[in-house]
Every structure is written in C-alpha cells, then in structure tokens.
C-alpha cells in the first residue's frame, strides 16, 4: 500500500507500507509490481523509515512511469528483499554513486554511520536527489565522480551506470559494485538476468547485484 510519494528532482520517492517484509541488507533489491505491465521491476531499497520501505524511481520507461504514477492508498505486489547486498564489515567506507545509482545510498549510509560520499549527476535538476544524502560531494557532468577519487580512497561501495562502475573498478579494483541487468523474476527462476563473470553466465539476481569476487 502506497503511503506517500514525493518528487526528488526528476525522480519519485515512493513510500510503501512495510507489512511483513524485512528491509534486508543495503544493496539488496525488491521486485515491485508495475501496474498494467506483464513483469515486475527491480528496485533497490532507498530508505527504511519506521514501518515503511521507500524506493527512489527514475521514470525512464513504461514500468517506472507506472510506478511513479501510483497514488496514496493504491496497493502493489512487492517481493523481497532479494539478492546479495553490500559487505558492511569495512574500516573506511566511501560511497560513490552516479545518477539513479544514488537509490541504495541513503539506506547504506544509515547502516554505515553516514560515511563520506561522492555523487555524480547528469544535470543540476538530477542533482536535487543529493538532498537524500546530506554532506556528500557532488559533481555534475561533464565532471565525473572518478575525478574526486583520491589515490587511497578506502573501501569504495559504488552504484551507477555501467561505464561509471567500470571506471571505478579501474581506479579501485577492490571496490564493491552494485550492477544492473534486465530481470524478469528477480528470484533465480528465469535465467534472464545473467551477466558474464569469470567467463560464466551467472544470475545477477542471485549472485548480485553486488557481485562478490569468485576468487
């Protein structure tokens, strides 16, 4: 059941009554029914206010637009928490996010005691979402998050578009990265979400979104 919706720059923060669902580990995700669509959509948990689950949604297509159009009191199916979250046993965490990759960061920051964060956005309008993570350093394109990475950045936890994640990985090979893939089920049944890891196709909904080193 939708308890509130808020605009955050171009994004919508969708707050749902939590019911029986656990919020899970930061970086885990939920499958949200997108009204009128055949398949549900994967969404990272953004915040876990008391009795609620909040999701930050970028309306880029029919499914996300349907989710952003939900009204207070409407009910949708929600499945989760799903997948692999971030490993939180760290000494010097640094959060790095690009665009809608900011979505899991507020919940992650709360779990880690508000560590430093670097956020990158396409436009000033998108950068309004940075209000969800007070104290973060912000860059707007053409500047990139990797420009702010120090030589010894600490334990990096990152979420964002693939080119950003690749760039972060080149700078910080040990960074924990939350990847995306197209999903149908989100719970390991369809084999639709595979990504190539060490030459094998692995299901991102089971072995990710935060992929642990196979080694």
């Amino acid at each position: 059941m939708v308890s509130a919706t808020e605009s955050v720059g171009p994004f919508t923060l969708l707050r749902l009554e939590r019911g029986e669902l656990e919020p899970g580990v930061p970086g885990q995700f939920f499958m949200l029914e997108a009204p009128g669509r055949v398949l549900p959509r994967p969404m990272s948990l953004c915040q876990a206010p008391h009795g609620e689950l909040a999701f930050l949604i970028d309306p880029i297509g029919p499914g996300t637009r349907a989710l952003c159009a939900l009204r207070i009191g409407e009910a949708i199916h929600v499945l989760g928490p799903l997948g692999n979250g971030f490993d939180l046993d760290l000494s010097r965490p640094l959060l790095v996010a690009g665009g809608i990759g900011i979505a899991p960061m507020p919940y992650l920051a709360a779990a880690l005691g508000d560590p430093p964060a670097i956020l990158g956005f396409r436009t000033e309008h998108h950068a309004e979402a940075a209000g969800l993570l007070p104290g973060a350093e912000i860059v707007v394109e053409p500047r990139l998050v990797t420009e702010l990475l120090q030589d010894d950045p600490g334990d990096v936890l990152a979420c964002g578009p693939e080119p950003m994640l690749e760039a972060v990985r080149r700078r910080v090979p040990r960074a924990q990265l939350a990847w995306e893939a197209r999903m149908a089920c989100g719970y390991g049944a369809c084999y639709g979400c595979v990504v190539e890891i060490d030459g094998r196709y692995r299901r991102l909904c089971v072995d990710g979104p935060v992929v642990r080193d196979a080694a």
Partner: peptide, 16 residues
C-alpha cells in the same frame, strides 16, 4: 545459454 540481454517485456507478454 545465449548472451544477455535475454529477456524483454513487450506490450502483452515477454520475449526470452
């Protein structure tokens, strides 16, 4: 199996 992407929603169904 085949390379990804492997699934896509269509108007009234999905392709895999």
């Amino acid at each position: 199996g085949n390379p990804p992407p492997r699934v896509v929603e269509t108007e009234s169904g999905m392709l895999n």
